[in-house]
């Protein structure tokens, strides 16, 4: 049975114009793509192939030059800046390549940041957060600042932060790039478990073979085109 698509991308292109030379560069070239709800999707491709650009547009952080992205049934092009911010807050979790966390907050506070922004009372999520941190062997690091955590630990806290907001989609741009392959593999396993348990759609960019293999769906980008 076909699951409903959570993300629909039609004829998406992104053209960058260089500031001084006015040379135009097509970072994304007529992308058509549907992603099912609960999928665990990797976007793979060499450096400069357009992975970050695509994730930024899906995450309503950037606007396409042409084409449309629909999340559930909302076309992103119709949203104002404030509405985009609201959409991100409610529906999309983000994990970036590195230095994801707010330096002045400890692990626990970072983990609950998005939930707090959503207006969830602190005490309602605390037990849940502590439970998850425990499962991830992060509970003894709850009071540490990001500068006192390893890169892998920081990324795990970032994943916890993303899923605690109960998003529909988590976008992760090369979340394992700064990690050794073992730690990277662990992080991807963690994301996969979360995806299965909570039914969250994960999309992550990577150029690491080991990481790609763990994806349910693999999308290959090359020079802005899906191959």
């Amino acid at each position: 049975m076909q699951r409903p698509y959570i993300i629909t991308i039609n004829n998406l292109s992104k053209v960058y114009t260089e500031k001084y030379s006015n040379i135009q560069y097509k970072a994304l070239d007529n992308i058509n793509l549907n992603i099912e709800e609960g999928d665990f999707t990797a976007i793979a491709g060499p450096s400069g192939s357009g992975k970050t650009t695509l994730l930024n547009i899906i995450g309503a952080l950037d606007k396409p030059t042409s084409g449309e992205v629909m999340i559930e049934n909302t076309p992103l092009s119709t949203l104002t800046a404030t509405e985009s911010a609201q959409l991100r807050l409610k529906n999309i979790g983000f994990v970036f390549q590195a230095y994801n966390l707010i330096p002045t907050l400890n692990s626990l506070e970072n983990a609950e940041y998005v939930a707090l922004l959503q207006g969830v009372p602190q005490n309602r999520r605390r037990n849940e957060i502590l439970q998850i941190l425990k499962e991830l062997r992060l509970d003894n690091l709850a009071n540490r600042k990001p500068s006192e955590l390893s890169a892998g630990q920081q990324q795990r806290v970032a994943v916890v932060r993303a899923i605690l907001g109960r998003p529909k989609i988590v976008l992760a741009d090369e979340p394992t790039a700064n990690l050794d392959s073992k730690t990277g593999a662990e992080l991807i396993e963690l994301m996969k478990t979360m995806s299965q348990n909570l039914g969250i759609t994960f999309i992550f960019a990577t150029h690491d073979k080991m990481v790609m293999e763990k994806a349910k769906t693999l999308i290959q980008l090359h020079d802005g085109k899906i191959i």
């Binding site: 911010a85 970036f96 940041y113 922004l117 959503q118």
Partner: peptide
Amino acid sequence: TREFGIMLALGTKPSQ
């Protein structure tokens, strides 16, 4: 700058 960028990306309001 990066810290603010992350906060804004996560959905923090500019007014906040």
